[in-house]
Design a protein around this nucleic acid. Sequence first.
DNA 1: TGAATTATATATCGATCACTACATAATATA
DNA 2: TATATTATGTAGTGATCGATATATAATTCA
Lengths: 214, 214
Amino acid sequence: MQKDGDMPLESDKSSVRGRGRPRAFDREAALSCATRLFWTKGYEATSIADLTDAMGIGAPSLYAAFRSKDALFIEAVDHYQRTYGGLVWSGFEAADTVRDAVQSLLLDSATALTGGVADNPYGCMVTLSAAGSEGHPKLGEIVRAARNIGFERLEARLQRAVAEGEFPRRRISPRSPALFRRCRPACRSLLAMASARRNYVRWRMWRWRAGMPA
Amino acid sequence: MQKDGDMPLESDKSSVRGRGRPRAFDREAALSCATRLFWTKGYEATSIADLTDAMGIGAPSLYAAFRSKDALFIEAVDHYQRTYGGLVWSGFEAADTVRDAVQSLLLDSATALTGGVADNPYGCMVTLSAAGSEGHPKLGEIVRAARNIGFERLEARLQRAVAEGEFPRRRISPRSPALFRRCRPACRSLLAMASARRNYVRWRMWRWRAGMPA
DNA sequence: TGAATTATATATCGATCACTACATAATATA
DNA sequence: TATATTATGTAGTGATCGATATATAATTCA
């Protein structure tokens, strides 16, 4: 019972039908609902009443299924990455060359984060949730960790490209930190792509500003 | 008395010493303090108690000087732009060529928004405050308006550059919206600078991630 | 059929939210 | 000094915050 906090995630037992009264709502659907609510309103601005209203359940049911507001938010971040992460990373992972991979990442993220996909909220849930994580250390740590996943994926792909000789290793200033040192040769060869992404983002921002559909 | 809402900002009368008991605190210093608090914690997560504690005044004094939490926040956004806007825009305004102007904007914003200046909070107060503006329409409108100022400054500078023949007007796809159409020729000639900024930002993000000083 | 177990519905809990009534203190004007 | 005016300090407003106690409903196991 006390070890509950050490369990990874999904400390929910009723995925298999258990002993007592069965749950009357779809846990995954409720989590999805909560995720979109946190995404649009932010952690602080989303109240338990907002959540229970949107999920269509009572507060005790929420607390029985998800231990607390904090735990629900942490699970929502995980759900967000599992559900919407593909919009940003699927092209990156599927690409054959490092150049195509980074190009997909830049273009796909520009699309996904500016209203390009269905009726998803604007922006990145993780980035937006970073505001207000001051004074909430545990939650800030979760958000920071989630943010670093992207860095690590990109770094790993670039390292692989260097190891496989996809672009040459170069000697550059030793004062630069490691990630900068690794990224620089790749970025230099990706100038045109960066230009395309920048213009694309600006175009989408214009439409956003003007209230036009994506 | 009812027209108070129509007054532009700074509906404060005691800049000149008036009739009654004089104010015992520095209004501008208190506003600065509130600005940094909103900047770090966000609008929703910052309570009146947080504000009065940090300002060192009582709640009635806060409400006497700044009409409400909303009004205080609006004034804080204005204060933010007046006080910290120069970190991002001074180089832009002082530059002789449009290229130097945009280069300054990109590099200076990268520095200012990632902890490059003194002990300022990370990120842009206006951008971060956008999260949670859902369901708070008046406040969201303020934030959106503040955000557009940057677009308009950049657009105006590019238009001026085109008008003065600093780079040639080109025929491009008529399907592109106006801002995109205007920015494209400029951006095309600014590729190298964009690369520099991208690497610079990534370098600063690395240091931020690692908890290193800027 | 009980007994055990789990979920739901109602009705809160104390704490904190943004905000203010009230009395008092400090100033200008008459 | 007397009066009007404004600010401050104390104490509190109703509302909402996250979270729960309690009783009841619904299920499995013996």
